Amino acid sequence: MLSFVVIGGGPAGVEIAGAVGELKRYILKRDYPGIAPDDLSITIIEGTDRLLGTMSREASDTALRDLNQLMVEVKLGRLMKTYNDNVITLDDGSTIYSEMVIWTAGVTGVPIEFSGTDYKAGRGGCFPTDQYCRIEGLEDIYAIGDIGLMTTDKYPKGLPQLAQVAIQQGRFLAKNFNSNKRDRPFSYVDKGSMATIGRNRAVADLHSIHLSGFIAWLAWMFIHLISLLGMRNKINVLINWIWAYFSYNTSLRLLLAGSKYPKRGELWDKG
């Protein structure tokens, strides 16, 4: 159960691998002294030649360096073919044993059949749409966010699967519905991309500006903090973050010491 494999080297995969890497490097020796750090393995598998493929090359290089420093093994240019009996088989025939596999390589839409239409599903089961978020081949049905596939000259493979796309498309449709007008097509405004890798480790591409390290980490925290609803929530989260930063501690950790209490241990030690 100490073997972790993350499938997908996008922002979600990098953040999860970095979090487990911090557990191995900083937390394990403090909270679980009976477990040797070498007994915990973390591997991230990415099918392309670099991590964070939607971000800049500088961000990809920084993420690779930081994950290596957090003792995470990175496998690039590899695809997972099967996962049976806790064994992952890659496209090159190699295998990895892991009892904890985390999938972050994207989602596939559930197929829906429409009769009497010219509708054809797009890549990954997404709904191809026009520039007004209307599903091509259907009438009065719209798709936004990850389930929609809107291609443009800048994004020939479709708009990125980011929260900002869904938010902007939602506001666009609401405005059109309320005004009952369809005079202007949707135009995505890229506000940049960010990914946190760990403590004091992050990358950010803000148009022509690239940030990394502590500055990018602070920017990531600030943006997520101001996105919370309510001033009370913002203050509580900020206090918890400050406490966790300086104490390396969290109230969400659970320690089990069954060997000290044999009768209690029987509850989870039974094979």
Results as ranks from 00 to 15, higher is better:
N233D: 12
R201C: 05
S227I: 01
W243P: 00
I215E: 04
A216V: 06
G198S: 02
F222Q: 04
A219Y: 03
R232M: 09
A219W: 00
F186W: 02
M221L: 13
M221K: 05
R253W: 03
A219R: 00
M194T: 09
I209D: 04
D205G: 06
A257S: 12
K234L: 05
F186H: 08
M221D: 12
G213R: 10
I242F: 15
S227P: 00
H224V: 02
W217M: 09
S227K: 10
W220E: 00
S212Q: 08
W217S: 15
R201S: 06
S187P: 05
L218R: 01
N240Q: 10
L256R: 03
L254H: 13
L252Y: 08
L256E: 04
Y245K: 10
L211K: 00
L228N: 02
A204H: 00
H207S: 15
Y245E: 11
G198V: 06
D205W: 14
L229I: 05
L238E: 11
F214P: 03
G198L: 04
V203A: 13
D205C: 10
S212C: 04
A244M: 14
S247D: 06
S212P: 00
S193Y: 08
L256H: 12
H210A: 13
S193K: 14
N236A: 11
W243A: 15
M221S: 07
Y248N: 14
A195E: 01
S193F: 06
L218I: 10
M194K: 01
Y245M: 09
S247G: 10
I235M: 02
A257Q: 09
R201E: 09
Y188W: 14
V189T: 08
A216N: 05
L229A: 13
R253M: 07
R199D: 00
A195N: 03
F222V: 08
N200A: 10
Y188I: 05
K234R: 14
M231A: 14
F246V: 07
M194Y: 09
S208P: 13
S193T: 06
S247R: 05
A195W: 00
L255V: 06
S212A: 14
H210D: 01
N240H: 12
R201Q: 10
L256V: 15
A195T: 01
V237W: 05
W217K: 11
V189Q: 12
H207F: 09
G230C: 03
S208I: 09
I223C: 06
Y248G: 05
R232K: 13
R201V: 03
L211S: 07
L238G: 15
S247W: 11
A219D: 03
W243H: 02
L206A: 13
D205T: 02
G192N: 09
S212G: 13
I209V: 12
S208M: 10
